[in-house]
Computed example of a mutant assay.
Amino acid sequence: MDETTKTLLEETDGGTGKPAGSTRKKPAVQSRNPERTRAAILEAARREVAAKGLAGARIDVVARRAGTNKRMIYHYFGDKDALYLAVLEDAYRHIRNAEHRLDLTRKPPVEGLRELALFTWHYFLDHPEFLSILATENLNQARYLRQSSSIPEMHSNFISELKDVLRRGEETGDFRAGLDPIDVYLTIASLGFFYLSNKFTLSTIFQRDLAAPAELERWGQHIVNTVIAALRPF
C-alpha cells in the first residue's frame, strides 16, 4: 500500500469514502444552570472560609472546588467581600430555616424549649463550619454582617416565635414572668458554643475526652436541664 492510499484510508471511515467520525454524535453541550452553579460556589466558599478564615480564603480555590472559574464567581457575586457576605447570609438562613421547621408556636412551652435547646446543640455538632464562620466574623467585629439587609429580618422572626413560647409558658405557670427571649437564646447557644470551641483545651485540662459520644450526649441533656431550670418560677 503506497503512502497516498494509506492516508486516504485513515481519513475515511473504514474505506467507505465517508469522513472519519462522520457518524459519531457530537457531544451535547451542557446547558447552564445558574442556581446550581451559584449553590456550588457558595458551598465551596463556605468550606474555604470555614477552613482558612476570610483573609486566608482564596477565590481560585473556591472556583476549583465549585468546578467553575473566577470569572463566574465575579459574575454571580461581585468581589471576594460580597461572596463572603453571601456565605454569612446563607449560613444564618440555613439555621433559621431549620429552627422554623421545629414549629415552636404549636408546641407546649416546655417541650418547645427542650426541642430548641437540643436542636441548637445538635446543629452545632453537625455543622462545625457554622461555628468557624461565626468566629471569623467576630474577628472582623461583625463588619460584614452589618452590611446585610436580610439577616436582621430572619432573626426578628425567630425571636418573635421564641417570645411567643415564653409568653405561653408564663400563662401556664411553667415559666416565670418577664423573660427576655434574647437572653434565653444566648443561654442556649453559649452553653453549646463554649463547650465545642474549647473542647480540646478543656479535655486536656480536666483529663476528660469531651468529644466522646457519651460526653456529647450528656452535655446536650445538661443544656436542656439548665435552660428549663433557669426559666422556672422562683
Rank of each mutant, 00 (worst) to 15 (best):
F124M: 15
P108S: 10
S132P: 00
L162P: 00
R167N: 11
G78D: 04
L131Q: 12
R71H: 10
P34V: 13
A50R: 02
L216T: 08
E170S: 13
P181H: 03
A211Q: 08
V224Y: 03
N225Y: 01
D164H: 12
S197A: 15
I182H: 03
E137Y: 04
D103W: 07
F158W: 12
L179F: 07
P152I: 11
Y185N: 13
L196C: 07
Y123N: 07
L162N: 02
E217D: 14
A229Q: 11
T187S: 12
Y185F: 15
E35L: 12
N157V: 12
F206K: 08
F124G: 05
R146N: 13
L186E: 09
L196W: 07
L216Q: 14
T16V: 02
N157I: 11
I188M: 03
P128C: 07
E43L: 11
D60N: 14
L83D: 05
P19H: 04
E170N: 10
T204I: 04
Y195S: 04
A91R: 05
A66F: 01
L202G: 03
W219D: 04
L179E: 06
R232G: 07
R93G: 11
I205N: 06
F77M: 02
S149A: 15
W219T: 09
E217Q: 14
Q147P: 00
F234H: 13
M72V: 13
